[in-house]
């Protein structure tokens, strides 16, 4: 059963087409990354899913049902900014979240502890630092241990240690079989945890699906020899090689298909060039992402 199914969702703000006919499916148990540069429609999309925004056209289902508040109560959501009553303490704010979610208060202590706010739980929200506000929002998401989480830029405002903690938390939650929908423009955040992605640009869905299927991230090799220029011209003649760039003392060589390091080594040796360095590298998601988002929309 898909957790979320979007069908042809469109939304326009005046002259700006925030979303243009977006459709995709979030399978249960996946860590689903919604990627896109700032202003690509990620938050608008999640706003529609959580009913704070209304789509112009299209429809969506949650848990295969027409979405109502009942479905939303089973999802922990952090959308855009931490939204809390400034004059109440962190604890009191979570009491309100718990009441709206129709859950007891017994889980509040646990989520405050996970987010490292136990010490400051009785201070007013307005006295919190940006990072603490974000942590409280994440505590709100975790309240009641929901099976589905929607996290919109969850590491906003956090320091490097906090970012690592959140990433770790997402990975741990994913490990327990929860479905996590994660919107971010920080690619390494997504790269490290996501099983599926949807990539948005200017409201258009560029692609979506399992990470390994939709983003071609062929490995490339880094290679070096005594005469790198000779090596470069040699490799450019190698079948399937698409580019060979000299980068410092190393040659970065790309291929149309998965490269075979042993075959390349053999090829060079046969041509009389002995390699001093050969390493298989994985193309970063960032590179793949930029390749995808830089191609013009048809």
């Amino acid at each position: 059963m898909p957790i979320l199914t979007l069908q042809n969702i469109s939304k326009r703000y005046g002259a700006v087409q925030a979303l243009a006919g977006v459709s995709f499916e979030v399978p249960a148990g996946s860590v689903f990354g919604i990627l896109g540069p700032n202003g690509s429609g990620k938050t608008t999309l999640l706003g529609i899913v959580t009913d704070v925004l209304k789509a112009d056209t299209g429809h969506f289902t949650l848990f295969d049902k027409t979405p109502t508040a009942r479905e939303r109560r089973q999802i922990g959501t952090l959308l855009e900014t931490p939204n809390f009553y400034h004059y109440l303490s962190g604890y009191e704010n979570l009491e309100i979240s718990a009441a709206v979610k129709q859950r007891g208060k017994d889980d509040i202590a646990r989520v405050l502890d996970i987010c490292g706010l136990t010490q400051r739980q009785h201070s007013a929200f307005k006295t919190y630092s940006l990072g603490m506000k974000q942590r409280l929002a994440i505590a709100g998401v975790l309240l009641g241990d929901p099976e589905v989480l929607i996290l919109d830029e969850p590491t906003n405002g956090l320091d490097p240690a906090g970012i690592a903690e959140v990433r770790d938390l997402v990975r741990r939650l994913a490990g327990t079989g929860k479905t996590i929908i994660l919107a971010s423009h920080l690619l390494d955040e997504v790269e490290k945890v996501c099983t599926h992605v949807a990539i948005l640009r200017k409201g258009n869905l560029l692609l979506s699906g399992a990470v390994n299927e939709v983003i071609s991230r062929n490995d490339y090799i880094e290679i070096a020899a005594a005469d790198n220029h000779a090596l470069q011209s040699l490799l450019l003649r190698y079948p399937g090689c698409t580019s060979a760039e000299l980068n410092g003392g190393l040659l970065k060589v790309m291929f149309a298909a998965q490269p075979d390091a042993a075959a390349i080594n053999n090829y060079c040796a046969q041509q009389g060039i002995w390699l001093s360095h050969l390493q298989l590298r994985k193309k970063s998601l960032e590179t793949a992402f930029l390749e995808i988002t830089n191609t013009p929309v048809q």
Partner: peptide, 21 residues
């Protein structure tokens, strides 16, 4: 207006109220 200032009108819906609530 507090609800709008703190954007808790959104959060109440997100967390599980219907808009009519």
């Amino acid at each position: 207006t507090n609800e709008y200032t703190y954007r808790t009108n959104r959060q109440n819906i997100i967390d599980g109220w219907e808009r009519k609530h």
